[in-house]
């Protein structure tokens, strides 16, 4: 296996980690919608100790893409210019909101920042869905690896459907996370119903999306992709069943698996391409024509082999420290 393939897999691992971990952070943010202040505070407290570390998975996925596949980084980030700008605004609001929402007890102040958290959760979830669909469908990329379309070209019905699917999936995943983090029985019961609804909605959105994908892209031509996406459906159903039966653990582990399988499915669909050109298959960016030199890839492989396991260990330890459920009393803590 050459280093380019290793790095394709590593980037996939980083994006999988990002979608799983920030997936439930975004989801918890979305679940705050329409909830009273004390419940929103419990939700924020549930992800409070970990969201910042989770967000670094996205930053690392971006940085690793830059190091291993600089052309992908260059083309992708300049292509999604306005979309990434909107995402950055959302993430800026969200990050500052977590810190400032509790600084004053006025409800206007907290409501404003909670709006920031919700905005900062809906928008990235939607935009990542849009981005992923565009990557799978292919973009007008010319012989110089430059995107020659406009921002509005990125918002096709299929892409928007993908965005909605991601929003529902992350909201579902976030609801499942809350099922294992919230102590209040009455609230848990409501969350359980929400989770089942969201699970079924994501399944429907996924089915619609798969139909579009079948008609519009070549991703279902690969058997491995079909298998991974099929397993995703199975995991989603298991997750719904877990939520319905009141087993938060089962629901959360299954939705985690579903997101992992989905991400792996998408990456296998792309392989060995990373950005598909809709102009000609020869113009696609792949793991060879977009890559760094073997020297840099070797260096980065060594770094990743050392540091990714270390990160996993201390992040897992953090989750262990904060494994207890959040009670309504905890929200006055910070």
């Amino acid at each position: 296996m050459d280093l380019n393939i290793v790095w394709f897999i590593l980037i996939m691992v980083l994006f999988t980690g990002f979608f799983i971990l920030e997936g439930f952070d975004y989801g918890v943010g979305m679940m705050m919608f329409g909830r009273p202040k004390n419940e929103r505070s419990q939700f924020v407290r549930a992800i409070g100790p970990v969201w910042d570390g989770n967000e670094v998975w996205m930053i690392t996925a971006g940085g690793a893409t830059f190091a291993a596949f600089p052309h992908v980084y260059a083309t992708m980030f300049s292509t999604f210019y306005i979309a990434l700008f909107l995402m950055l605004l959302a993430l800026i609001m969200r990050g500052v909101a977590f810190e400032l929402r509790g600084k004053f007890q006025y409800s206007d102040w907290t409501n404003f920042w909670d709006f920031g958290i919700m905005f900062g959760s809906f928008v990235p979830a939607l935009l990542w869905g849009v981005a992923v669909v565009n990557l799978l469908r292919g973009l007008p990329i010319d012989y110089q690896m430059h995107y020659i379309g406009t921002f509005l070209d990125l918002l096709s019905p299929c892409a928007l459907l993908g965005g909605i699917f991601f929003m529902l999936l992350f909201a579902f995943h976030g609801a499942n996370f809350l099922l294992i983090k919230i102590a209040d029985k009455k609230l848990l019961h409501e969350l359980q119903q929400k989770s089942v609804c969201l699970g079924i909605s994501s399944l429907i959105a996924f089915a619609l999306f798969a139909g579009f994908a079948f008609a519009d892209t070549d991703i279902l031509a690969k058997l491995s992709t079909v298998i991974f996406l099929g397993l995703t459906v199975a995991a989603l159903i298991a997750s719904c069943a877990g939520a319905a039966s009141g087993c938060g653990c089962k629901a959360f582990i299954s939705s985690t698996l579903a997101i992992a399988l989905l991400t792996i499915g998408f990456f296998t669909a792309l392989f060995p391409r990373i950005m598909v050109s809709s102009i000609s298959p020869d113009l696609s960016l792949n793991i060879y024509n977009a890559a760094s030199t073997p020297h840099t890839l070797t260096l980065m492989t060594i770094a990743a082999a050392i540091f990714v396991p270390i990160v996993l260990i201390y992040q897992a330890w953090t989750y262990r420290i904060f494994k207890e459920r959040v009670t309504p009393a905890d929200i006055h803590y910070h």
Binding site: A64, F69, T296
Partner: peptide, 14 residues
């Protein structure tokens, strides 16, 4: 990218 990406990725990772 071959040069600049590495310290940036290491910054995130370490």
């Amino acid at each position: 990218g071959d040069i600049f990406g590495a310290p940036l990725a290491l910054e995130a990772l370490t």
